[in-house]
Amino acid sequence: MKENKVIKKAFGRAMEEVKVPPSVERRVFRRRAIPFAFPLVGLAAGFLIGVVFVQFWHAGEEYLPMSEEKVQGVHVVFDKDVKMGQVEEFLRERGLSMVGPTQAGTFLIKNAKEEHIKELKRLNYIKEVFW
């Protein structure tokens, strides 16, 4: 074998005996990723700043509980003899709807106004009203 081949092979074998620690790979690929992390961190920070800003912007406003904010109306207890189909038809004709019953046996007539309740009372559909 030629001299240069012998020396090259000898280096090759010596190199095989020197194990590269796995941490080299981990460190190269982790540290290289850091520059790419900056834009992402920037975006996340921007988003958080935005959220905080919005919170301050609305700080003076009063918020209603979700149930009250979304579902406004009048709680009523219907007469036990009334047919629910009649009530629903009455409400539908006036563009209203209701949800219920609750555990207490009440129904919520959404967006009901005083005149609607008076009319329902006159028809003897309602037993009790909770304003």
């Binding site: 074998m1 030629k2 240069n4 012998v6 020396i7 092979k9 000898a10 280096f11 074998r13």
Partner: peptide, 27 residues
């Protein structure tokens, strides 16, 4: 023209500077 294993052992006994230049030139 010695045995590769023997040359490997001899390379290990060289100074770092000698090893460096031979590594660059031969490997």
């Amino acid at each position: 023209n010695a045995d590769v294993e023997l040359v490997k052992k001899a390379i290990d006994k060289l100074s770092p500077q000698d090893r460096e230049i031979l590594f660059l030139a031969y490997y």
